[in-house]
Design a protein around this nucleic acid. Structure first.
Lengths: 245, 245
DNA sequence: GCAAAAGTGTTTGATATACACCCATGC
DNA sequence: GCATGGGTGTATATCAAACACTTTTGC
């Protein structure tokens, strides 16, 4: 218990500035979330996993990803690897964290630049790509344990980020159609946060934030008073992956 | 203005999963902040830069950093490169973001895993390391413009992160001795946030947060009522670089 | 009318801010 | 005493939560 420094481990090897020494491999991994209908009124938060077809944790489920190639940005790499391995092209993609412990992959030192992505349920056709024997969605609290490598840790972190950002930022729209009711928006919050939200207070909150606009249209064919429809009032470009804003 | 997707750029080349294609180089860069006394009552926030001695933006000031070597974690790499290039061994080191646009370095595609670090003024001896002709501190709002590569952008992001975390987390202690007065702690906040803070309210805020403890000792030799001394009540281990907590 | 969910209003408490005021020390 | 900053108290505004209540639709 101290506020001072615990200097860790020992000094490095001899030549530290030489660039001819071997570097770790670099890859991307993506935590893709979606909101899956349950039949009931409460959709559930699900994460996308692929079943590994190759050595090192073969048969285990893992996050989709792949290598980073020279000449392509990290975002491009993540997007393309995700498309290649799973068939999914996400609208929203944001960098999470970069994992680089030498022992996180048993074969060799491999750095993972991780992303998290949000997609609407049903808009994407799953297709298992090279190196994977299956692709599927799993409830975030029911992933097949243990996942490959340090992927449990990465999902935990992605989930934490999603929960932190959903109310202050405007990620919830990524799970909905362009027009939606406030009740639908609220169920997104509830599924992400894992708890009930008071409808009247939620209404005031989003109204005060100014992130939604009434379209003037109303819901139709429901066995109760029809709700007003809304659109999001902000551009996705305002919150895309750029970390420096 | 849309909440839907702007799919960017084109598809990748042919074989996406081959690992024998060239990968970008991987390095770390560190944004080191300190609180530098000014003679007056208000210390100023300063950032550490090195003058580049080699090709590609030679002569420009840049963030200290270097390559990542196989077998060492990213945190270790950042810490060692910082020690090697500047002589500084920071207590607090936290990952910021990973920059990887292919054009961020004119020579070749190079990924930068960036960190930010906090050190106490006067505790470290600056020493220019290999590849650098000088090391020095600069006020955050008076860095020699333009810095090398995309380093201005990286510093902006680090500063934003520091400002966001200083009040809710407990980074301010990293700028102070183990025992300090609340006035000293307040000047840290003021220097980081760039604005005045009301002393009575600040006192209540930190008291309510429970992040400080009275030592029972008091200031001595000041030409006014002596202030109580405090220690931080939390371990640095609780907030070190681990992103997943 | 009744059920069900939309939508409005009100009360309450917690929290942030502004600022008046007293306290303890060196000179 | 007086100046200076340490430290306390208090009034106000703002915001969040809880919940009673009214409205509008299908049946």
């Amino acid at each position: 218990m101290s506020c001072r420094s615990p200097i860790e481990s020992g000094p490095p090897t001899a030549a530290e500035t030489r660039r001819d020494v071997a570097q770790p491999q670099v890859g991307t991994s993506v935590v893709v979330f979606t909101l899956r209908p349950t039949g009931g009124a409460h959709p559930e938060l699900a994460v996308l996993l692929v079943r590994r077809d190759r050595a090192a944790d073969q048969g285990r489920w893992a996050l989709p990803g792949g290598w980073v190639h020279k000449g392509y940005s990290l975002t491009e790499s993540a997007r393309w690897q995700l498309m290649d391995k799973t068939g999914i092209e996400p609208d929203y993609l944001e960098q999470l964290y970069t994992f680089g412990r030498p022992d996180r992959d048993p074969r060799e030192h491999r750095i993972a630049v991780t992303y998290f992505a949000l997609v609407r349920w049903g808009e994407h056709q799953l297709r298992a790509g090279p190196g994977t024997s299956a692709v599927d969605w799993f409830r975030v609290d029911e992933t097949p344990s243990p996942l490959a490598f340090d992927n449990d840790e990465i999902i935990d972190y992605g989930l934490r980020r999603l929960r932190n950002k959903v109310d202050y930022a405007h990620l919830a729209f990524q799970f909905l159609q362009p027009e939606f009711t406030l009740a639908e928006l609220r169920t997104v919050y509830e599924a992400v946060l894992g708890q009930k939200v008071d409808p009247p207070n939620f209404r005031r909150k989003v109204a005060a934030a100014g992130t939604v606009l009434r379209t003037g249209e109303r819901q139709q064919g429901v066995p109760h008073r029809p709700a007003s429809l809304y659109r999001c009032a902000i551009s996705i470009d305002e919150l895309l992956d750029a970390p420096p804003a």
